[in-house]
């Protein structure tokens, strides 16, 4: 277990390092001087040079790269070009709303995934199975930002059930703590539901396939033969075993969720990372764009590492030493 753990962690760290470098070089090697995107053209040469130094754009590419790495190591992600404050401050503000939104949507999605997989697998080939598949495929094919807009149109503009955007009411500052959170929950319903609905079908279909597999096993037959009720067989013997791959799956699904969160945040005006990213792109505020991209990438790497660890822990078969060497057998396995 330990050698595996070390190599897995080393792999994740390497991935993060490559990510950091890639973000840097994509921005710096893009055609044009990044300075031109920031300052007006009529700026004198002396002022330009001053600006260049202040933004850390002076010196050679590798020098800049070294400085960027060094600053990052100290937790310094640079200064926003538009907001006159450190990027970390902007990120810290956006992190809370994004976590609230994604974690809620993730939990909702998990419930949707398990429920729909159960329905599809137990009603296999029946109308209900087809109905769930059809609905899932439709949601999967819908433009996500448009679905969000339609929800705003229907549930907030027409029916008035939920607020159309933002994550709290304008006068939220005057609320008591309890009221404030109720207000946030009220704002959360639409975006979180949209996010969960948009992409539940991918993992659901994998889980369904796993469930189909498990339910065809001999031990399920044996459990039935012992006279256990269908429900007990399904939940205790079937689902429990089929849930194992779901750990990996939800880890792999994290990028999709974060991508979806970006879309939802933009449409609903949710003050999270996605919105910050888009606004920074509109404003050509590239230090912010670099930072949010980086942070999202790190979140994904950490998520998939955690999923791997969790999987190891949950599946006792993988703790055997001779099976722990996944790298060697990878080429044949996949």
């Amino acid at each position: 277990m330990l050698p595996w753990l070390t190599s897995r962690l080393a792999q994740s760290l390497l991935l993060i390092f490559i990510l950091v470098s890639a973000v840097f070089f994509v921005v710096r090697l893009a055609p044009g001087d990044p300075l031109d995107q920031v300052v007006e053209e009529e700026l004198g040469p002396a002022d330009r040079e001053l600006m260049r130094q202040r933004l850390g754009l002076d010196g050679g590419l590798w020098q800049q790269y070294g400085r960027w790495l060094e600053a990052l190591a100290h937790g310094d992600m640079g200064h926003s070009l538009r907001q006159q404050r450190p990027v970390t401050e902007i990120l810290a503000e956006a992190l809370g709303p994004t976590l609230l939104l994604t974690l809620t949507a993730y939990s909702l999605q998990l419930i949707l995934v398990i429920a729909s997989a159960l329905v599809m697998s137990t009603r296999r080939g029946q109308p209900l199975d087809h109905a769930v598949q059809g609905i899932g495929l439709t949601f999967y094919s819908l433009p996500f930002f448009w679905l969000s807009l339609m929800f705003v149109l229907l549930f907030s503009r027409q029916l008035g059930w939920f607020p159309a955007g933002g994550w709290e009411s304008p006068d939220a500052a005057f609320y008591s703590l309890g009221e404030r959170w109720l207000d946030r929950l009220h704002h959360l319903v639409l975006p979180a539901t949209t996010l969960a609905l948009g992409a539940f079908m991918g993992p659901a279909r994998y889980l369904r396939a796993g469930l189909d597999d498990v339910l065809a096993q001999d031990y399920i037959l044996a459990a039935r033969a012992r006279g256990l009720s269908n429900r007990r067989v399904l939940w205790r013997h079937g689902l429990r075993n089929a849930l194992l791959p779901l750990i990996t799956l939800m880890g792999m699904w994290l990028p999709n969720l974060l991508g979806g969160a970006l879309v939802v945040e933009v449409v609903f005006g949710w003050p999270g990372m996605g919105r910050v990213t888009i606004e920074a792109i509109w404003a050509r505020d590239y230090p912010v764009v670099m930072a949010t991209t980086l942070l999202t990438g790190v979140a994904v790497v950490v998520g998939s590492t955690l999923a791997d660890l969790l999987y190891r822990w949950a599946d006792p078969r993988l703790r055997l030493p001779d099976m722990a060497d996944s790298e060697g057998s990878r080429r044949d396995a996949s």
């Binding site: 991935l15 921005v27 893009a30 990044p34 990028p255 999709n256 879309v263 050509r284 994904v300 080429r331």
Partner: peptide, 30 residues
């Protein structure tokens, strides 16, 4: 085999990343 490992590492790297952020990063610099 070494080529396989290199290429697949790169592929995994790209895949690990939320695509929309990658797209936005590329669009934002041009």
């Amino acid at each position: 085999r070494w080529l396989d490992r290199v290429l697949m590492s790169i592929t995994d790297l790209f895949m690990a990343f939320p695509r929309i952020f990658l797209i936005l990063l590329l669009v934002s610099v041009t």
